[in-house]
Write a protein that binds this DNA or RNA. Structure first.
Lengths: 220, 220
DNA sequence: TCATGTCTGTTGGAAATACAACGTCGGAGG
DNA sequence: CCTCCGACGTTGTATTTCCAACAGACATGA
């Protein structure tokens, strides 16, 4: 019996008791596959008819731009999902690729098996569907939040938009962000040194105060 | 019996026969409300526990930025959904507001009623859930596509990223885009005249050819 | 203690963008 | 036919950002 401990961290299986996991997987016809570092798990252009779940290791989500450069969009670790939006939307050809960034173990579940209640009425499908809805919706909200930062035209506005968004979410004027400078710059799609410069300006203008990852909004 | 003709265009009710709509709505406990132009349909901070569907008229989705400016994110017409991601994600306080941009009629359906099968087993809930998954997933993909354009740092890259994305989706090197120049500039968050300038440059460089809304990619 | 590496802020020149202003084109309506 | 008006492209200038290089702070480990 394979090690499924990562699934307890997987939002798709939230609310499913550990003892129910194994029978659920046979009901879902989940297939576990192994991949060595660098192996292509889902190729760009393939039909993404199943949801992928990372059990061990990490995978890159990649996409080619118009120059032909393969670009890393994000990295996903144990318990993480991939290709779930593509599967739910019924996309024919995946616009992105999935590549093993380390040796990894992947669980694949056919999308139809999740939504169609199984004959034995195991009763867990409604939970999975509910979870899937929540996952998609939360990702949706996160994407909109990021978009709101990126639509700003100046670096100052982008940073302030990000910080105010975080502060609103935490209901507080002091926040600890999960990025270092380079990470924040990448998130906002700006140059790191430019970001540092603009942060200094904002501090001199009395709008914010900060030290490393800790920020304080100084609204009037 | 109210006019529900807009619902045939609503992706949430795709695949539901017209004659089934009325009983389905009573089963969903859908409530129809009227709003005059400018009325607040969902206030920022309210709990979005139901999905909104525009039957007639149009609504704005608005959000305040950190200056206190109320900003219009998008406009939604007959058959369109709003607050669906917020409801599915179980958000406590809405970060956006919904305001009637014209006199309008709104149908609200409690989120739980959609996912929980009704006692009379009307059999349509699985269709609704499937539709909801598809709506969220497609919106997800659209957001990622837009993000991919906006993460580019130069206007040329943003435009090319957009055009190549559209061309890939249409499987063709010639595309008619649904924007005029100002619309495209807004979508890419750049200045309109700067966009025009960069488009000229791209044409002189022999990378694209265009006339009004019609574009042609001249890859090698 | 010293060497090393990482993270951060700063600086100056090059490049890109925003912004305002203007000319042209083509359609709508009198 | 003419005028008006909006969409589009072009130009020049001010502003902003990028980019490369460097310096200081800090942690780690020999």
């Amino acid at each position: 019996m394979p090690d499924l401990s990562s699934l307890t961290r997987c939002p798709l299986f939230a609310g499913v008791a550990h003892k129910d996991l194994d029978p659920l997987l046979t009901c879902l016809a989940g297939r576990i596959s192994h991949h060595t570092k660098g192996a292509v798990i889902l190729g760009a252009g393939d039909r993404p008819d199943s949801v992928g779940i990372v059990l061990d290791g990490r995978v890159y989500i990649t996409k080619e731009d118009y120059f032909g450069n393969r670009n890393i969009l994000t990295q996903i670790g144990p318990g993480g999902l991939f290709a779930e939006a593509l599967a739910c939307a019924g996309v024919e050809a995946s616009p992105v690729g999935v590549v093993a960034s380390e040796d990894c173990r992947i669980l694949r579940v056919a999308y139809r098996r999740i939504t169609n209640p199984c004959s034995e009425s195991c009763g867990l499908h409604p939970i999975l569907v509910q979870n899937m809805l929540r996952v998609l919706a939360q990702k949706n909200i996160a994407l909109v939040d990021k978009l709101e930062c990126l639509t700003r035209r100046t670096t100052q506005d982008k940073v302030m938009s990000y910080l105010v968004g975080q502060a609103t979410r935490h209901q507080s004027n002091t926040i600890d962000i999960p990025f270092n400078r380079q990470g924040l710059a990448d998130f906002l799609s700006v140059d790191r040194s430019s970001l540092s410069t603009e942060l200094s300006k904002l501090q001199k203008q009395g709008k914010i105060r900060y030290h490393k990852n800790h920020f304080e909004l100084l609204g009037t």
